[in-house]
Design a protein around this nucleic acid. Sequence first.
RNA 1: UCCCCGGUAGCUCAGCUGGUUAGAGCGGGUGACUGUUAAUCACUAGGUCGUUGGUUCGAGUCCGACCCGGGGAGCCA
Length: 474
Amino acid sequence: MDTDHHSEAPKASVKALLDGAFPVNETVTVEGWVRTRRDSKAGFSFVHVNDGSCLANIQLVANQDLDNYASDVLRLTAGSALRCIGTVVESQGKGQSVEIQVQSIDVLGDVEDPDTYPIQPKKHSYEFLRSVAHLRPRTNTFGAVTRIRHRAARAIHQFFDDMGYFWINTPIITASDAEGAGQLFRVSTLDMMNLPQTDAGAIDYAQDFFGRETFLTVSGQLNVEAFCLAMSKVYTFGPTFRAENSNTSRHLAEFWMVEPEVAFADLADLSQLAEHFLKSVFAEVLEHCGDDMAFFADRVEPEAITRLQNVIDQPFVQLDYTEAVEILQKSGRDFEHPVAWGTDLQTEHERFLTEDHCQAPVVVKNYPDAIKAFYMRLNDDGQTVAAMDVLAPGIGEIIGGSQREERLEVLAKRMAQHGLDGGDYEWFLDLRRYGTVPHAGFGLGFERLLNYITGLSNIRDVIPYPRTPKSAPF
RNA sequence: UCCCCGGUAGCUCAGCUGGUUAGAGCGGGUGACUGUUAAUCACUAGGUCGUUGGUUCGAGUCCGACCCGGGGAGCCA
């Protein structure tokens, strides 16, 4: 337990101390960053210290008889880093069960200019905190986000592991565009000031690093399908890149996506998987991040905890796209965008369905063929595909998925209709030539999930370093 | 990319229809007081009002352009 050769006292995280892992009268080493300091002229100071292990701080009580009381303790300000050796004692004050009676305190790093240190014990705007992304982990809010993000990621892996899925690390660099649109980040080592050209005057990508055009992945789905049709149950969980000029609170240029892919499964199996998946992750977060969730319920979104519990307790509402259109048309609402069968649901329509009509997560299934991607399975009606979106109140689309087109002829025809070059996708068609089976999968935006869990409304506040159009600092 | 809104002290903001030396709270410093809890009280330091043109006797305030940020829309996860 004692890995610190500077002292004999075992290191104690703030979380362990407040959990009662160290008995009263034990001598421990506490390390962390000062949040607040209050001095008593009776001859001692209270120093609240946070080490990120939990939301709460540990209170140090430092007496004036310490050698460095005047020189160091009285000069501690928010953000100072310290190591302290002290005794666990029952607190004489209210607000905490135990505190540390300091035996020695060592300032590891003071704050150069306390007057301009950005993180103060006060409310800051999220916009301001984004401008100090390297310091915002020291705030209560971002610390809580960080712990919940970790727990949710862990819960996702746990869920799939329990269900017999394998985690597949699909490539970040890819030559294909899974969405069929020009929205990719180019990966190149060519000298942009001196681009090699072909005889025809085009850029000669044969001279580029990979000998062809390459991009950052927009989805691991196509690659993971190959493993699905061998391992049966697989998923990806990794960074994803979209070069869309989207300036909203729900879009990032770099985000993390979870994409399960299941063999021998249809759309009904998939929507059931999505529901179990979300419920499992929410339950895990509620169980393990109680303090952090209580913080969000108190400061950010009063319903943060209750709505997660409601999702866990209630079955998701299942709607056919056609049904959803009818509900919207009969709603009597004066929508800005008209509702018509054959057009995609607009944000205002999705919000009505999930926030007003159902007041719960909604699974909308079987969309018109024309508005969905080429790889989605054509239904027997010849007009719709076996696609589904899971819509969450306040967030909108959180999951998008489909049963995949496993029939070679139908897939080839759909690819041609979408103008996709068969050559780059021959390997994808191979999967339909050799032992094809019905299979299905979905994509979940990890940050959107975190927005829903925490109640934070901006996606830039649930990822450590947000990348958005015209913005990639730090 | 489109439509709105904004940019004043380290932070959060106020500053009316243009008018002398631009204000508050928090934070910082100093002092008082207290087993304190984002303590309290007093004093104090701190601002080329996003940039740049223009209108005017006079611009934080009005107009144009640009930069940056936010909200909404589209696209999507």
